[in-house]
Structures are given as structure tokens and as C-alpha cells.
Computed example of a mutant assay.
Amino acid sequence: MSGAVKLVRNEELSSVAEYAYAATAQAPARVVWTAGACPLDEHGATVAVGDYAGQAEQVMRNLVTALRGAGAELTDVVKTTVYVASTRQEDLVKAWEVVRSHMGGHDAPSTLLGVAVLGYDDQLVEVEAVAVTF
């Protein structure tokens, strides 16, 4: 972690959530906003069709690559939003478990959403992030 990011926990809120409830960034800092990372391979094809966890793995690999290109890493992330094309909570959980495993001990605040459809053919998962570095 760059030291610019501090994850904030609050004892007055439930400890059930697998992420901090807030994050702060120390100024002066550089903010990185990513586009939604998608489950696309290097040729632009959607991978792991029909597989929430498989798509989430590719999404997180692509997110790491996008962050690295901007001079950041997962431990610099202050917020993620995880989009899952499903109305079934179990599908959201499958994607979330992969995202959490990639984030490791850096449990930045996150929002997990079930949505009707995502932008690419056969796409089930997308993750966007905001990161802060010095």
C-alpha cells in the first residue's frame, strides 16, 4: 500500500461485511479511476461463458493490469463496485468471493450489485475501482 489509503472500520456497525465501511486518502495524492474491468481476453473475447467465478478471475486479472498501467495496485484501492448480471444472490456471492480473494487483507469498501445486463456478449461480471497513490 502506498500509505495514502487508510481503511476505516467502525465498531458501531456490523462486522459481518467483508470490507471496511469507509476509506480516506491523504493529500497530496494522485487518484486513479478505472473503467469497469471486464472478463475479456487479449483478443477481446468474453472468457468463462456462464461461469461467474471464472469471469470474476479474468476481471480481477484485468483490473490489476489496468491499475498497474496507471502506477497503482490493488492495495491502493479505496473503493470497488462489483456488477453481476443476475438476480440470484448466490451468483453475486460467487463473483464476490473471487474479488475478495484477490483483495486479500486489503478489504477496501465495496458495493456489490445485481444488474440486468452488462455491455459485452455473455458478460456476467464487471469491477470498477478507485485507487489513490502518492
Rank of each mutant, 00 (worst) to 15 (best):
A29F: 13
V117Q: 12
K6T: 15
P28A: 00
V49P: 08
F134M: 01
R100N: 12
G44F: 09
V77D: 02
K6S: 14
D51H: 09
V125L: 07
T65L: 04
N62S: 09
G50A: 04
T111C: 02
W33L: 14
G114S: 06
T87C: 02
G114E: 02
T75W: 05
L92Q: 14
H43L: 04
V99M: 15
R68S: 15
T111F: 01
Y120A: 14
V99N: 04
D122H: 10
A37T: 12
T46S: 05
V127I: 10
G54A: 11
E126D: 06
Y21N: 15
T81K: 00
V132W: 01
D91L: 01
A4Y: 05
R100E: 13
M60Y: 08
V8P: 02
G71W: 08
S14G: 09
F134W: 08
T111I: 08
A37W: 10
T34W: 13
S2G: 03
R68C: 04
D91G: 02
V5E: 06
P28W: 01
T111R: 00
R88Q: 14
A72E: 06
Y83T: 00
Y83D: 08
A53T: 01
T80M: 13
E12M: 09
L13F: 15
Q26W: 03
P28Q: 10
T46R: 06
V117S: 12
T87S: 11
K94L: 13
E126F: 01
R30K: 12
T80S: 12
T133Y: 06
A25R: 07
V32G: 08
G54L: 10
D107H: 09
T133Q: 04
M1Q: 02
Q55V: 10
G44T: 05
N10M: 04
V93Q: 05
T65N: 04
D41G: 12
H102G: 11
S101P: 05
T80K: 00
A35C: 10
P39D: 13
E97F: 00
V64L: 03
A129N: 01
T133I: 15
M1T: 08
L112F: 09
Y52S: 09
E73N: 14
D41R: 11
V99R: 05
T65P: 00
Q123F: 02
V93L: 03
R100M: 09
R9H: 15
E57I: 05
T87E: 09
V127K: 00
L13A: 12
